[in-house]
Design a protein around this nucleic acid. Sequence first.
DNA 1: GATCATAAAGCGAATGCTCGTTCTTGACGA
DNA 2: TCGTCAAGAACGAGCATTCGCTTTATGATC
Lengths: 204, 204
Amino acid sequence: MPRVSAEYLAARREEILDAAARRFAADGFHRTSMQDIIDEAGLSPGAVYRYFRAKDELIESISVEAMGHIESVVSGGIDGEEPLADLIAGLPAAFDALGRTDERARLAVQTWGEALRNPPLAEALAARLANVRSALRDRIATAQRAGEVDPAADPDDAAKVLLGLLQGYLLQKAWDPDLDPADFGRAARVLIAPRQAMPGHSID
Amino acid sequence: MPRVSAEYLAARREEILDAAARRFAADGFHRTSMQDIIDEAGLSPGAVYRYFRAKDELIESISVEAMGHIESVVSGGIDGEEPLADLIAGLPAAFDALGRTDERARLAVQTWGEALRNPPLAEALAARLANVRSALRDRIATAQRAGEVDPAADPDDAAKVLLGLLQGYLLQKAWDPDLDPADFGRAARVLIAPRQAMPGHSID
DNA sequence: GATCATAAAGCGAATGCTCGTTCTTGACGA
DNA sequence: TCGTCAAGAACGAGCATTCGCTTTATGATC
């Protein structure tokens, strides 16, 4: 078996994915040609097609990976013990802390549009969103019990709103890489929790 | 039909734009072929190319139109005299009131991605966003003076947050047409103004 | 008001090009 | 020597766009 190590194969695959991510982020999925990716990776068509059956497979891999990063940022933040307001204020910065922020934000926007048209992608996205929403919902319910959030809010709907907030941040970050995550987070916190915890709302 | 009225020409042009919008919303800009649009409009290639020089011109027209609708909804809402909380709660419903909500939401998402790559589109989008942000900023400053919003918030950053909220709603609406604008708006209002106006914050 | 001439409006086969993908060939490690 | 990996020329499909022809509404003419 004249072969190469499994590590070599995995590394090659990752190289191709990285190259594809760079080009996809820059030009969008459908304005990026396979040749663009092949050139960016410094390989040949034959080589790339040994690792990925088709362009769609590349798009799906990149998209699912991109969703995973965002999901892990939100889920990771939710697990903390900090007040909800701090969590919200910190999410933009937490996303930026992943690195390669511009690329990630742009890929996220591309992925959102792609999911409207690509059923497997839509399914993957829906599943991950459901996870995030459910974690957020629980976190909000807890915050309500602690008197941090008005008990009149429906936790399910409030979760959608908070998720929307982060999506809006990502979108604006994709357009403007100079958008400051701390400023955005601080403004979100002040809007949502004007004077720290609301007095007199605790359920006990 | 030679030498026809200007109204006839405008109506034809509008027919083509409508057909293109339907297909673009369904399949995305780049998965929609000119033949798809031509078939949807019930015309021939020659006819369509008489009204639009190229596919990109179609994409730009549709995109700019889509942005305009969103801008007018937000700007229209901002002009009102209602409390900021009511404005925020009502924006999702106001967008839905435009009609053809699913199509509009999906087109908006497609446009966001396209603007990342298409300079003229990016410019048009940036200009409209600047308008909306500036109107929101003024509205927030007014609300702060009225004691509706914590004066600690930077109006500029707060405007970005509120804009992000609406963008998040549009995105979620594109994925899930059943998303209820009233629920979303109500949750946003409760989160941002937990107990109506905050007491004791008026500057006078 | 019927006929005609004109040029705009529409048609659709044809074009040229780009793209994703395949396949043959060669190189190289085991 | 054998199987794997990479290379890159080649291919066919599908795309946006063009162009020469046909159709037809309109204004002029009688």
